[in-house]
Amino acid sequence: MNTLLKKCLAATLLLGGLMSLAAFTPASAASSPDDLKGKNVVLVHGAFADGSSWDKVIPILQAKGLHVVAVQNSLRSLDDDAAATKRVIEQQNGPVILVGHSWAGAVITQAGNDDKVKALVYVAAFALDKDQSINDVLKGKPAPPWASALQKDSAGYLTLSTDAIIHDFAQDLPVAQARLVAATQGPWFAGCTDDKVSEAAWHNKPSWWVLTEKDRMIPPALQAAMAQQIGATVVKVDASHVAMLSKPAEVAAAIIAAAREAQ
């Protein structure tokens, strides 16, 4: 075999080897159009809950390359919870998508004025305006059945009965999981419902809304009215108040959509 032929054969074998190696490169190593690295999602839990309420959503967001942090609220006041959220926002490098469930809708409305926050996502939440409280929004509306199941301790903190969590808070979860939610709930200070927002971030930030159509805590019609008021992009989910636990893929999809558009 002459020298030229040997060189051609060697080049062919090398090229074939490189092509085979490329064919077996894991898909995760390739660039993905869904890759959202460099963006941060800050998740804020609501009343009667803690940061673990996002456990099913977090892995889905991380798989898209998002950096995710769940805030642990004290549930003592709007100012305290907004301050806890702001501390987490401060720690992030790059743009933040701020997500709030339930009571935390008020929290992200207050804390979302930070320049790092590029989008707000309300999940079955309260969206308040400046100088407005939850009680202002609920004024004149009939008390929901679960309200009679609230238990107040000597310090003024509220908890929901296990029965109310099973039937009204998380009725689309398996009973065993709903009991776990009841056992790990965070007591909520009763005075929080009178705390007023000092500046509403949704006036200056794009917003998304996960509207829970089987919600017995914040009625779907009330959610729809608030979402319309703030001009949110609405995603309807056939779920109870805890959609992040019963329909995590759908909740995550709404957050991912906000992250893709956040600039």
Results as ranks from 00 to 15, higher is better:
residue 1 M to K: 00
residue 1 M to I: 11
residue 4 L to R: 02
residue 6 K to N: 12
residue 7 K to M: 05
residue 8 C to K: 12
residue 8 C to D: 01
residue 13 L to V: 09
residue 16 G to Y: 13
residue 16 G to D: 03
residue 17 G to M: 13
residue 19 M to V: 11
residue 20 S to Q: 10
residue 24 F to I: 14
residue 27 A to E: 11
residue 29 A to T: 11
residue 35 D to Y: 02
residue 36 L to F: 03
residue 40 N to I: 12
residue 42 V to N: 01
residue 43 L to D: 01
residue 43 L to N: 07
residue 44 V to W: 01
residue 49 A to I: 10
residue 51 G to D: 01
residue 51 G to R: 10
residue 54 W to Q: 02
residue 54 W to V: 12
residue 56 K to I: 14
residue 58 I to W: 02
residue 61 L to P: 07
residue 61 L to S: 06
residue 61 L to D: 01
residue 66 L to V: 14
residue 71 V to L: 04
residue 74 S to D: 15
residue 74 S to A: 13
residue 76 R to F: 03
residue 76 R to L: 09
residue 83 A to T: 10
residue 84 A to P: 02
residue 87 R to K: 12
residue 88 V to A: 08
residue 89 I to A: 03
residue 90 E to P: 07
residue 90 E to Y: 08
residue 97 I to D: 00
residue 100 G to T: 06
residue 100 G to H: 03
residue 102 S to K: 00
residue 103 W to S: 02
residue 104 A to D: 10
residue 105 G to L: 06
residue 108 I to S: 11
residue 111 A to T: 00
residue 112 G to H: 08
residue 112 G to E: 03
residue 115 D to H: 07
residue 120 L to N: 05
residue 121 V to A: 08
residue 122 Y to R: 03
residue 126 F to C: 01
residue 127 A to H: 10
residue 128 L to D: 02
residue 129 D to M: 05
residue 132 Q to L: 06
residue 133 S to E: 12
residue 133 S to N: 13
residue 137 V to R: 08
residue 141 K to M: 13
residue 143 A to P: 05
residue 145 P to D: 04
residue 148 S to T: 09
residue 148 S to Q: 13
residue 150 L to M: 14
residue 151 Q to F: 11
residue 151 Q to A: 12
residue 152 K to L: 12
residue 153 D to M: 15
residue 153 D to E: 02
residue 155 A to E: 12
residue 158 L to Y: 14
residue 161 S to P: 07
residue 162 T to C: 04
residue 164 A to K: 00
residue 164 A to N: 02
residue 165 I to F: 04
residue 165 I to V: 14
residue 169 F to E: 02
residue 172 D to K: 09
residue 173 L to K: 01
residue 174 P to L: 08
residue 177 Q to W: 01
residue 179 R to Q: 14
residue 181 V to R: 01
residue 186 G to V: 02
residue 187 P to Y: 04
residue 190 A to I: 10
residue 193 T to A: 08
residue 196 K to Q: 04
residue 201 A to Q: 03
residue 202 W to I: 07
residue 203 H to P: 05
residue 205 K to Y: 02
residue 209 W to T: 03
residue 209 W to C: 05
residue 217 M to A: 15
residue 221 A to Y: 06
residue 228 Q to D: 13
residue 231 G to Y: 08
residue 231 G to F: 10
residue 231 G to C: 13
residue 233 T to V: 04
residue 235 V to F: 02
residue 236 K to R: 15
residue 243 A to H: 00
residue 244 M to C: 09
residue 248 P to E: 03
residue 249 A to G: 06
residue 254 A to G: 06
residue 256 I to N: 07
residue 256 I to G: 09
residue 263 Q to T: 14
residue 263 Q to L: 10
